[in-house]
Design a protein around this nucleic acid. Structure first.
Length: 199
DNA sequence: CAATAGATCATCT
DNA sequence: GATGATCTATTGC
């Protein structure tokens, strides 16, 4: 199935965080049998970005953010949910991208089983907590290498041309006006909502 | 529709 | 001991 798509190499991630965040839009996030098109991301920078976990320096939790690019940073929040980030910048420089929404393209039955509350396809993985739940991503994936293994990001054979909206990040208080959230414009219409299209 | 409360715990002060 | 990069069910218009 999804194996025909090329996995993004580590060099893709070893760049400025904002660049990585923008270019992740339209790529395919794959975990085991499930996959979805990335529709929304947020950039979290280094020491000057008070909203970023990395702003407090290296702790047991933030270690991965300072490490090799192309790894997953997964953290647990609100006593209930996990959030998935991808580490950017060269090793030693902090920076990561929060994946906030995907549009499901494969493994629908598994996703629905893990998210019985979802009312529609668009609702299945349209949020940071929703998508980790739908894909079955937990703290066990923290630190895992997304250039190989069961959790990867891939590109279509043909790059889709996307209209990208830039807005402030949501759900934070510090640096709340920084334009570091990137959304695919009209993301719901990017792919058919006809379920027979999907795997 | 819009607003709100509740669930629940790792991490850092 | 407080806080939080959230989601859902429920309430009130």
């Amino acid at each position: 199935m999804s194996c025909e798509w090329e996995i993004l190499p580590r060099a893709f991630y070893a760049r400025p965080t904002v660049e990585v965040a923008r270019e992740l839009l339209g790529k395919v996030l794959v975990h085991r049998r499930c996959a979805g098109i990335i529709l929304e991301t947020e950039a979290y920078l280094g020491l000057n970005d008070k909203a970023a976990h990395a702003s407090r320096g290296i702790t047991p939790r933030t270690r991965v953010i300072f490490g090799e690019p192309g790894h997953a940073y997964v953290y647990f929040i609100y006593g209930m949910y996990h959030c998935l980030n991808l580490v950017a910048e060269p090793a030693g420089t902090p920076g990561c991208v929060l994946i906030r929404a995907i549009h499901p393209v494969a493994g629908l039955s598994g996703m629905r089983k893990r998210r019985p509350a979802a009312r529609s396809m668009a609702d299945l993985a349209s949020g940071p907590g929703k998508l980790t739940l739908a894909l079955g991503i937990t703290a066990g994936q923290n630190g895992s290498d997304v250039t190989r293994g069961s959790l990867t990001v891939r590109r279509f054979r043909e790059e889709p041309s996307l209209r990208i909206l830039t807005t402030p990040r949501v759900g934070i208080r510090q640096c709340a006006d920084w334009p570091l959230r990137f959304v695919v414009e009209d993301g719901c219409a990017i792919l058919p909502s006809d379920e027979s299209f999907y795997l």
